[in-house]
Simulated scan of single mutants.
Amino acid sequence: MSASKISNDYEAVLAYCCDKTMNGYEQALHYGRLSGYFTKDNKLTAMGHKVARLIEDDLAA
């Protein structure tokens, strides 16, 4: 996977988490870790990449 695709996926999932928490960066990352989207070192998990696909396809609620 290209670096730009990984970056785009990360940004999409982080924005999704921000919307869910209605809070800042740290709270969004915490929510993303609890949801299984990010690892302890804030990298996207396989689930995070799947969520990015759903966001990209406008299927994430």
Rank of each mutant, 00 (worst) to 15 (best):
1 M>T: 08
2 S>E: 05
2 S>H: 06
3 A>V: 08
4 S>L: 13
4 S>V: 14
4 S>F: 11
5 K>V: 08
6 I>R: 11
7 S>L: 15
8 N>I: 07
9 D>F: 06
9 D>R: 08
11 E>M: 09
11 E>I: 08
12 A>I: 00
12 A>P: 00
12 A>C: 03
12 A>Y: 00
14 L>C: 01
15 A>W: 03
15 A>L: 09
17 C>H: 00
18 C>K: 13
20 K>L: 07
20 K>W: 01
21 T>F: 00
21 T>V: 12
23 N>P: 00
24 G>H: 03
24 G>W: 01
25 Y>C: 05
26 E>G: 06
26 E>Y: 08
27 Q>K: 10
27 Q>Y: 07
27 Q>T: 09
28 A>H: 01
28 A>W: 02
29 L>F: 14
29 L>I: 13
31 Y>F: 14
32 G>I: 00
33 R>A: 09
33 R>W: 09
34 L>Y: 07
34 L>F: 05
34 L>V: 11
35 S>F: 07
36 G>V: 09
36 G>H: 08
37 Y>A: 04
37 Y>V: 04
38 F>I: 08
38 F>K: 02
39 T>W: 05
39 T>C: 07
40 K>Q: 14
41 D>F: 10
41 D>H: 11
42 N>P: 06
44 L>E: 01
45 T>F: 04
45 T>W: 04
46 A>F: 12
47 M>G: 09
48 G>H: 01
48 G>P: 02
49 H>T: 07
52 A>V: 03
52 A>R: 00
53 R>G: 05
54 L>Q: 13
54 L>C: 13
54 L>A: 14
55 I>G: 04
56 E>T: 13
56 E>G: 13
56 E>V: 03
58 D>Q: 10
61 A>I: 11
